[in-house]
């Protein structure tokens, strides 16, 4: 059943093109979201036909960048789910603080709001000096924005409320300076961030971490791909390292689950073996 311009067959054709020409494999993404995003882009960019869209994707690498950025979902927030950040503050960071060095991986970090939130937590826990934040995403465009530390000023009120709910005690505005309609975060915060493209579908483990945060990325993957990514995370975690997922994601049904222990009801698991 199809009421949309770009139908299921068209989508398989496009996905094959992306894999063959560019090495991007979206075949194991959840279909309904992908189809909606592709149709949204088809309308947005006013393609006269599917053939035209396909031709543009195949032949125009500049457009490909836009295509990948638009069919993935990049929406993010600072201190999203404040209770999650509260547990990081109260349980996870005090444990990590006993280590000489803390390496954190934000997989699928989008425009970086989550990474800056983490940097603020680390500063407030006095652990910043011995931490490194690796922030990766499939999209180079969002990483470029993340590395600048510039966010819309209009979002700061909402971020500030969540910061306080997460247990933040400082004046949130002390972390940025207002510049027209943008908030520029203190460059000290980004001094410990390393931004790099990394595709969870095809790239390998690149380091060992004490904490991996991958939130609202796996909801876009099918079960098989989720299983592969969980293996990748397991390989990339130190023993007793933590894995944090989004509020609607779970490790429970995966084959690596027996090697992890969940922290109460939170979407945080600790590697035990």
């Amino acid at each position: 059943m199809d009421f949309q311009a770009v139908n299921d067959d068209n989508i398989s054709i496009l996905l094959n093109d992306l894999l063959e020409i560019y090495g991007y494999d979206f075949n194991e993404y959840s279909k309904a979201s992908l189809k909606r995003r592709i149709n949204r882009l088809f309308t947005l960019d006013k393609f006269p036909s599917f053939a035209e869209m396909r031709y543009t994707v195949r032949t125009n690498p500049e457009y490909l960048k836009r295509f990948i950025e638009e069919i993935t979902v990049n929406v993010t927030e600072m201190f999203r789910d404040p209770s999650f950040y509260r547990v990081l503050r109260e349980t996870v960071l005090p444990t990590l603080g006993t280590y000489p060095f803390i390496r954190i991986w934000h997989a699928g970090c989008s425009t970086g709001e989550e990474v800056y939130s983490m940097a603020i937590l680390l500063q407030e826990a006095n652990l910043f000096h011995k931490s490194l934040l690796y922030a990766t995403d499939i999209n180079p465009g969002v990483l470029e924005r993340a590395s600048k530390g510039l966010f819309p000023l209009s979002h700061m009120k909402g971020h500030s409320e969540k910061y306080i709910q997460s247990g933040g005690k400082k004046d949130f505005s002390s972390y940025y300076s207002a510049n027209y309609d943008l908030a520029k975060f203190n460059s000290e915060l980004s001094s410990k961030m390393i931004f790099s493209t990394h595709n969870l579908v095809s790239d390998h483990s690149f380091n060992e971490f004490q904490l991996i945060i991958c939130r609202n990325v796996l909801i876009y993957f099918d079960k098989d791909l989720q299983a592969k990514v969980f293996k990748l995370f397991e390989q990339s975690l130190d023993n007793l390292g933590y894995l944090a997922l989004g509020s609607k994601e779970t490790l429970r049904f995966s084959s690596v689950a027996p090697n992890f222990k969940q922290l109460g009801k939170e979407k945080i698991w600790r590697k035990m073996a």
Partner: peptide, 21 residues
């Protein structure tokens, strides 16, 4: 449908969640 996520129905009759605009 959980708060703050879109709920999508897949062709294989499972549920997907999505945090888009």
């Amino acid at each position: 449908a959980p708060a703050d996520y879109h709920l999508l129905v897949e062709q294989d009759h499972t549920i997907s969640l999505d945090y888009s605009e």
